[in-house]
Amino acid sequence: MVIDLDRCTGCEACVVACHAENNIATVGEDQAARARAMHWIRVERYYEGEFPNVKTKFMPVPCQQCGAAPCEPVCPTFASYHTIEGLNGQVYNRCIGTRYCANACPYNTRFFNFYNPVWDKPLDLQLNPDVSVRSEGIMEKCTFCVQRIKAGEVQAAAEKRLVKDGEIQPACVQSCPTQAMVFGDLSDPESEASRLARSNRATRLLDELGTFPKVTYLQRGSWHDNENA
């Protein structure tokens, strides 16, 4: 996935879309105030400059789907593991809730169900049947909408063809009004996402930790922006 920070307006449509797509519980005001809100993707806000010349920068942060993820080996029950396709899988049924993965995650993109989830009416009527609902006591996190990836692959297999670039879109990518996010297969060097990931504007979050994140951020700062800018 590639996220263009220069295009992000901080509208948080991705956050809402993610909640709707992935059956993420709304924990309510009280719990949110106690820092227990679960947003698989969040828009981080940072301020640049001194008042009154302040600029706000927005940075949507989903799970970075690290290539060498710190969250995976620390899980004692293989709830957190690396799938063949390179995603960080989270198997809810295996999770016993040690929360070790969340501590090991440098991006804080793992979320714990402190209580059994509830949905305010009428949100309960729009639960996505393709996504399992999580119970109290387990971890959950962004899956890159694995249900959409699987559905796309099944569709392509049924039509006896390969998945086309851009055919599969996670909910956040689909909902972004400024098209700041691009999703694609990084193992295909010709995909749009691969192309953008090679851009001069590309950076990766906390790259220095050696986690090999699969989310690439594009932002200004390079003086020789190429045609991808």
Partner: peptide
Amino acid sequence: PEPLITGGMPLVA
């Protein structure tokens, strides 16, 4: 049947 890879470690770490 499928290797359970975690964190890029070898299977028998």
